[in-house]
Design a protein around this nucleic acid. Structure first.
Lengths: 153, 153
DNA sequence: TAAGAAATGTTATATTATAACATTAGGAGT
DNA sequence: ACTCCTAATGTTATAATATAACATTTCTTA
């Protein structure tokens, strides 16, 4: 099958990558950070902060909201998870891309979120910048609709 | 100057349009709805629900959150206002478009939000639908960056 | 004008997120 | 190994955003 690491949506690959990332960048891979990442990585559907917190409570003792939010913020800044704005929820990132755009397909029936790269905005945004009107730094796209699975049901 | 109505971002044009819309569609243009629309239309920057509520309190007596939220939801469904997901805030819509996509440029410095139409997603999304993978129904785009005004400061 | 539907008023509370400060853990330099 | 410093966490409290539920009022229309 010859799959590269980034193609496999399984949990360990991502946690391993995160571990390597932390070593290379001298970031501390603490218990709450590790557990939060594992929780998010274990789901295809986005989890709310308090769902994450609840699951966190099964592996560490009585965690409070800031514990979850801090870990979420950490991984988000490092590009390991995404925040889905319209849902106030969080999903694992399978690409760990250093580019500046996020694009998601969101099934409004079942809630599954899939990261996509349908569009490359860079060119159009560059043109826009030459207008001298607006200098873009990042973009965020949500495409809502119905996923293949839900079409058959 | 010969400007069409939709080009003028002033308050009255939009409220007039909303009034006409309600008559034509037999929707009730009630006091809270009217005042909430006027409040949102009077701002170029997005307003949070509780900011709207606060301003609403200056024209009607002690409004409660549901009063503001109901009016917000009403205008949003009818396409007269947009919700900016990343800000949990609301802006007037200058186009009253019946198409399925929303695109915004958001200045991260000053907070100004401008509706844009840089991209037409329709074609790409149609292709995607032919894949039989995902049937898109709407899209939402945020482009973050720095506006012209803030570049000069 | 009365009945039914739609919107609002009101109370309470759910959900999401962060401020503030005390405590603990980890790394750098000696 | 010890001390200092910084970063991260623990903890308490509360801010900010949003909705559920039900009583009341207003509008429409028959």
């Amino acid at each position: 099958m010859n799959m590269r690491k980034n193609d496999t949506p399984q949990q360990n690959g991502i946690v391993d990558q995160a571990c390597i990332f932390c070593v290379e960048n001298k970031e501390r891979l603490t218990r709450p950070r590790l557990e939060v990442l594992k929780i998010i990585a274990a789901n295809t559907k986005p989890l709310g902060a308090y769902e994450i917190l609840e699951r966190l409570g099964k592996v560490i003792d009585s965690p409070k909201p800031p514990t979850a939010y801090r870990a979420i913020e950490f991984w988000q800044k490092k590009g390991f998870i995404h925040r889905i704005r319209s849902l106030n929820a969080y999903v694992i990132c399978h690409a760990v891309h250093r580019h500046k755009g996020e694009q998601f397909m969101i099934c409004d029936d079942c809630g599954v979120v899939t990261e996509t790269h349908i569009y490359d905005f860079s060119e159009s945004l560059k043109n826009r910048a030459e207008d001298n009107t607006f200098i873009p730094s990042s973009w965020y796209v949500e495409i809502h609709g119905q996923c293949a699975q839900c079409q058959t049901n």
